[in-house]
Design a protein around this nucleic acid. Sequence first.
DNA 1: CGCAACAAGATCGTATACAATCTCGTGTAC
DNA 2: GTACACGAGATTGTATACGATCTTGTTGCG
Lengths: 230, 230
Amino acid sequence: MTDSPTKPMTAEDVALDLERAIHEHRLIPGSKLGEDEIGEVYGVSRTVVRAALQALAHRRLVELKRNRGAFVAQPTVREAREVFEARALLEPRTARSAAVRMTDGDIVALQAHIDAEHAALHAGDNGRALYLSGQFHIEVARIADQATIETFITELIARSSLIIALYWQRRAALCESNAHHALMTAFAARDGERAEELMKSHLLDLVSSLDLSSKASQPQSLREALKASG
Amino acid sequence: MTDSPTKPMTAEDVALDLERAIHEHRLIPGSKLGEDEIGEVYGVSRTVVRAALQALAHRRLVELKRNRGAFVAQPTVREAREVFEARALLEPRTARSAAVRMTDGDIVALQAHIDAEHAALHAGDNGRALYLSGQFHIEVARIADQATIETFITELIARSSLIIALYWQRRAALCESNAHHALMTAFAARDGERAEELMKSHLLDLVSSLDLSSKASQPQSLREALKASG
DNA sequence: CGCAACAAGATCGTATACAATCTCGTGTAC
DNA sequence: GTACACGAGATTGTATACGATCTTGTTGCG
């Protein structure tokens, strides 16, 4: 089990790993992503690192500043509202389609997903719990069998993770527990109408758990944030 | 006006130019996009060409095949259906928002857009007319003031152009003329409800103008197509 | 003492070179 | 005559090298 001759990772591998790290809040918004640094970590050249960063930039997960480098994106309040507007347009109808097409196997898989989320939560691994709660939404889109919409939702979920990192205010519990469980009952009953409504309220709850008062924290740059605290 | 000392284009410039060419059907689905060839055309190195192609690949406009190169994407029948499903979810509600927020200036600009489309059509420039008809939808999204949704719609419009290139059957007239004009009347009246309904029917009309009988033409590769004709 | 100009270091942008893989034509065996 | 195997050519994948730009510490002037 030597790890020295690890076969070279491709750009997509690096992008996926970075995306996971961002999703789990191991990389926080604003973090600098130096090309040499990442290349050294994964044992690849800057060429593939750049490709990975460009891919993430296109998904709006990192921001590329010319001659300055790549940073984990910091969605503005406006972008946060837009992301949840888009989710409100896409996800409820997708949940309805999923409810109709849902197989028994899908239900088992979804329930296992929720269980894993709870397990991570009880283990104190909030990052992983947050990641899994996002994956739940993506699973629903997959079951709805709409790959294009699934791609959009996947991007919106990832951006939502950044938004939560920046604007979360209710630190009590991860919102999902109840909402996702309620959705499961609608799925089990193949009740598309109810699934659509539940998803709609779930998204509204999510938005209301954020602090999007416009004037609030948008630390455009680390320097800005430090200035303010000084 | 010498063009020899043209300053070097950036990757995004190349990507935009290629996207326009695809959108105007100057590049048809399946076309090979050789890196050296493109680099020579735009006077840039393969490095920037690769970045441009990767950007287009992420927008699903080109397909990257490992060790084989980049090709203009050939959406399958299934992808075609999915694209219009997604548009059906996003565009009607967006048209409603646009109608409410519409300013007099917006209306003038939109009307000018339609006029340009008709002019291109009468000039026989079908490619440009198709491009402009797509831009109309994007303009609506811009007026709705939802940048995130606008990004999605922009991608869907571009993919729709590929789908039209592959599956168009009514060659009579570009579908837009009437539908877009009708939308304008709803916009002028700030009638969001009507704009939403009109956009919905417009998209349904679009789908019904395609030949999506599953077994039909999907020339996976140029070679396949030529084999069949031989 | 504060501020602006300058220079050294670091990081990114682009081009080029080399290695890996695939395509396709040629030759040989059956 | 057909089919398979081999090799030359071409194309992509990756790494490295060099130039441009930005950051930052220092120095000199006001």
